[in-house]
């Protein structure tokens, strides 16, 4: 550190300031969700910590709306998105990076081309397609279009392309076919990128709002984000309940990201993530 302690003190001061601005709103929501019904949460300066801490608001949310089935619905959609991307994007990425076939360049070009289209532009015809398959108002209909995202195919292709060619050539001489090379050489070398794809497929599916809002009409099939928006309309008189519902949606993602952040920031430092 060469004695630049003054600089470091300033850095920590700024880091703490940004920390308060980032965590503050989450902490405030968590605190509100734990406040008892006897506490005045509407005075000009309410107490920061709950004076009568209680989990009662969480129980009341669960009584009033089917929050457990919303969670189950979101998990089902997220599981399908994770499985589809982990399998489909990995296989396609391998084909584009390591196998030679006619039409490969065209396929790669088309896959890249999809990136200039924001998802919202095609969301209506996506809905028409899903409805045509008889999947309107189903969880499968919510999960299906994103089950193999083209961005993930390209990410996996980049990871597979980084494996040295000599490893494949040696395996070919040993008589290994494409599947054996994929399993023994390919997969062990792309674990980092695969975990990034898995984490972000999960987070993307869990957080998604617009698409399930369009596909789902039956309130019993709502995913958590859609259900939460519905909750906020129904309970606008009691922010404690909205706060509890919000925390139910937020805490699982915070835990998933907290556990998985190592992989993510390792990827960032290796320059794997460029937006």
């Amino acid at each position: 550190m060469r004695g630049f302690t003054g600089e470091n003190v300033l850095r920590y001061a700024l880091l703490l300031l940004v920390l308060v601005l980032t965590v503050g709103p989450f902490a405030w929501m968590l605190s509100t969700s734990l406040k008892g019904s006897g506490e005045d949460i509407f005075t000009e300066i309410p107490a920061f910590l709950p004076q009568q801490p209680t989990l009662n608001n969480y129980a009341r949310v669960a009584d009033s709306i089917p929050v457990w089935s919303y969670i189950a619905n979101s998990l089902i959609v997220a599981a399908m998105a994770v499985t589809g991307n982990a399998v489909g994007a990995t296989l396609a990425g391998y084909a584009l990076a390591r196998l030679r076939f006619r039409g490969m360049k065209l396929l790669l070009g088309l896959t890249l081309g999809t990136l200039i289209l924001p998802g919202e532009v095609t969301i209506i015809s996506q809905y028409v397609t899903v409805r045509g398959m008889g999947l309107a108002d189903t969880l499968l209909g919510v999960a299906l279009p994103g089950a193999i995202a083209m961005l993930n195919v390209l990410l996996m292709r980049t990871a597979f392309a980084a494996i040295p060619d000599e490893m494949d050539e040696a395996a070919i001489i040993d008589g290994a076919d494409a599947w054996q090379r994929f399993v023994r050489i390919g997969l062990p070398n792309v674990k980092g990128m695969l975990s990034v794809v898995v984490i972000f497929s999960f987070i993307g599916a869990w957080d998604d709002f617009l698409w399930p809002l369009i596909v789902l009409t039956n309130p019993e099939k709502y995913t958590l984000t859609v259900g939460l928006q519905y909750l906020s309309g129904a309970f606008s008189s009691d922010p404690r309940l909205i706060a509890a519902g919000t925390m139910i949606a937020f805490l699982p993602i915070a835990v998933v990201f907290g556990v998985a952040q190592r992989f993510f920031f390792r990827g960032v430092e290796e320059g794997a993530i460029k937006g």
Binding site: L228, S232, F257
Partner: peptide, 11 residues
Amino acid sequence: VASAVVVALIW
């Protein structure tokens, strides 16, 4: 990583 719905309800 938080859903936009979560963030909007907090704000």
